[in-house]
């Protein structure tokens, strides 16, 4: 019954969800010893979507994100990219396949300039073979491209040549997001992008996320801020005790409903059509 209802929901409210999902997880599970952090998660993310990943602490958000960004391997289940199974052994694997992650601590180098941070670890070289041999940086190209990438996202910073350490929290966040947007082609993952920011800076970050989303690359945004989620997300996915308990279109739901799923006050298994197994396990699960 619920299955059918959801199938209808999907066709009615998500016209963008056609064709092959950019990223898809199939029965993704992760065990830490005897503790199950993630349980049979099926998630499909299509180009142009902004999927908010919400849930209480320990619900499995960061476990799911780490599996997608290659930080560790799931115990079972698969991750498909453009319909083909992908092996994400390391973060480098994930990056090569076009999955970029902005961690909460941003992972920027304070003493390197903005351009250098955008290209960190992937610097272009100049002067052909000799340049590649000695690793001679193409600094003008880095600055130029960084400037263009930031302009495209309407990010204003004093200069791409100023060290990241001299910039505000919002500018740093913008730099980190711009870096993922520059390199990610399949999926961008933002972990709590507004948690450390003030009101004005949060606003700018949200605007930036919308601009990035407008480029068509799907995003997963992990956040605790319901207001921000309703502002940017096209879809809201709720995790609880390692399980995907709700997959809602923003237009169809309310903050109250989302909070209900997060806290467990609501328990109807509003999960995608193929998750019949999950409903069973939920029934026999703890509690």
């Amino acid at each position: 019954m619920t299955d059918q209802q959801n199938a209808v929901d999907m066709s009615e409210h998500a016209p963008g969800r056609l064709g092959t999902p950019a990223v898809r997880t199939i029965g993704l599970s992760k065990w830490y010893g005897s503790v199950r952090a993630l349980s049979e998660v099926n998630l499909e993310i299509y180009p142009g979507e902004v999927v908010a990943l919400v849930g209480d602490n320990g619900a499995g958000k960061s476990t799911l994100v780490k599996a997608l960004s290659g930080a560790f391997q799931p115990t079972s289940g698969e991750i498909h990219i453009d319909g083909a199974p992908a092996r994400l052994h390391t973060p480098a694997d994930a990056r090569k396949l076009g999955i970029e992650t902005v961690y909460q601590d941003l992972a920027l180098v304070a003493h390197v300039d903005v351009g250098g941070n955008l290209y960190l670890g992937r610097e272009p070289t100049r002067w052909g073979v000799i340049g590649r041999l000695f690793g001679i940086l193409d600094l003008p190209a880095m600055s130029k491209h960084a400037e263009r990438a930031l302009a495209e996202l309407k990010v204003t910073i004093p200069s791409v040549r100023s060290p990241v350490g001299t910039m505000s929290g919002g500018q740093r966040q913008a730099t980190a997001i711009a870096r993922t947007a520059l390199w990610g082609s399949k999926l961008l993952i933002l972990d709590e992008p507004t948690a450390a920011l003030g009101v004005q800076e949060s606003e700018e970050a949200l605007q930036l996320i919308e601009d990035v989303a407008a480029q068509g690359i799907p995003l997963i945004v992990v956040s605790h801020n319901i207001e921000h989620i309703f502002r940017i997300a096209t879809r809201i996915v709720v995790l609880r005790q390692g399980r995907l308990v709700a997959d809602l279109d923003r237009g169809d739901t309310s903050p109250d409903e989302v909070v209900g799923y997060i806290t467990g006050a609501r328990t109807s298994a509003a999960v995608p059509a193929d998750a019949g197994d999950d409903v069973d396990t939920a029934g026999s699960g703890p509690r």
Binding site: Y103, L108, V109, A110, G121, G135, L137
Partner: peptide, 24 residues
């Protein structure tokens, strides 16, 4: 100033974890 060697020396000294995550 002009090579990966110098750039990564700074990156490692400034934020080793960020350097590692950047694939260095």
């Amino acid at each position: 100033r002009y090579t990966r060697f110098g750039r990564y020396t700074v990156a490692i000294g400034s934020n080793e974890e960020a350097a590692r995550r950047a694939g260095i």
